[in-house]
């Protein structure tokens, strides 16, 4: 395919070129120039968050240059971190995310192993189904789930609404399909000889999984874990629909709904809260960037 199209290019008139290295150097300069422009575009909001977070309310409403901090202060950070409410949001987010990540990884590793190696009736259909569910957005599911929860309350008396732990039930719908999908990809790429050898040596299926598959597919496991964590940390729609009391909110919803008091926007605190809330995924990303990117690209390139 490419060979044919490449030979088409021969027919085109030959351009006059001088030294290749010279044109390369110019291409390089232009690349850097545009990269700087795009980096400014991509980094302006987080940097502006940081700038605003260092300002006092008086400075924010003053008619000075908004891009510069004249009197840096940490009062926003101190106020937020001594405020019980924000710490509760943070705690709720942390517990929910950790639980969701653990549940997701257990479910998806077990299922991916079964689907990648141990065929059973309907396993191929299930693998496709897993991928299809990944494509169903949460915006399609929140209304029926809302109604279902009301129904559960009416019949069994279990109140699922307005509790942060409800989110632990809900988030796996977002994380499990994708994590299973990329784990299937990673497991399928492990050579069959490895587990055959283990089976001959008398290993059980569980031993094959824990002693061979998990260690060998560890990079994929880390990538899936990071994905599950980022998704559950960032989820906005489910907590907005299912939790309302301030002590049950998770970070994204808590910042959006409680720091805006009436029509008064306390921007210094909002930006500080958002920045601190964005910190955990950013820190994970900073240290595990390669795994993060591997997880991102795995979804579409594997399979």
């Amino acid at each position: 395919m490419t060979a044919v199209t490449a030979s088409d290019a021969v027919a085109a008139p030959r351009p006059k070129y001088g030294s290749i290295s010279k044109s390369r150097r110019w291409a390089l300069r232009w690349s850097y120039f545009f990269l700087v422009l795009f980096a400014i575009f991509f980094l302006t909001p987080p940097i502006y968050m940081f700038i605003t977070s260092l300002k006092s309310s008086a400075e924010i409403s003053a008619a000075t240059n908004p891009w510069w901090v004249f009197e840096p202060t940490l009062e926003n950070y101190i106020e937020l971190l001594t405020q019980n409410q924000y710490l509760i949001f943070f705690r709720n987010s942390a517990i929910v995310s950790v639980c969701v990540v653990s549940i997701t990884m257990i479910i998806s590793v077990l299922a991916a192993f079964a689907l990648a190696r141990m065929k059973f009736w309907g396993s191929a259909t299930l693998a496709t189904g897993v991928f299809l569910t990944y494509l169903i957005p949460e915006t399609l599911l929140f209304i029926p789930l809302f109604k279902t929860f009301a129904f559960v309350r009416d019949t069994t008396g279990i109140e699922l609404m307005n509790h942060w732990w409800t989110l632990i039930i809900l988030y796996p719908t977002l994380t499990v399909p994708f994590c299973t999908w990329i784990m299937i990809g990673y497991f399928a790429s492990i050579p069959k000889e490895l587990d055959e050898a283990a089976l001959i040596d008398g290993a059980t299926w569980l031993q094959t999984l824990t002693k061979i598959f998990i260690p060998v597919a560890l990079p994929g496991l880390i990538a899936a874990t990071i994905f599950a964590f980022t998704v559950s940390w960032a989820q906005f729609l489910y907590p907005l629909a299912f939790t309302t009391s301030t002590d049950q909110l998770v970070l994204p919803v808590g910042i959006v709904t409680t720091l805006i008091k009436g029509d008064v926007f306390n921007w210094g605190q909002i930006m500080t809260g958002a920045l601190l809330g964005a910190a955990p995924p950013l820190i994970i990303y900073a240290f595990l960037m390669d795994y993060y990117i591997a997880g991102l690209t795995a979804g579409a390139t594997k399979g």
Binding site: F42, M271, A278, Y285
Partner: peptide
Amino acid sequence: MLLVPWVIPPAMSTLAWLWL
């Protein structure tokens, strides 16, 4: 550097835009 917008939870980065 260029992947940072994707990493920040959308609800929080949108707040920064709202302020901008």
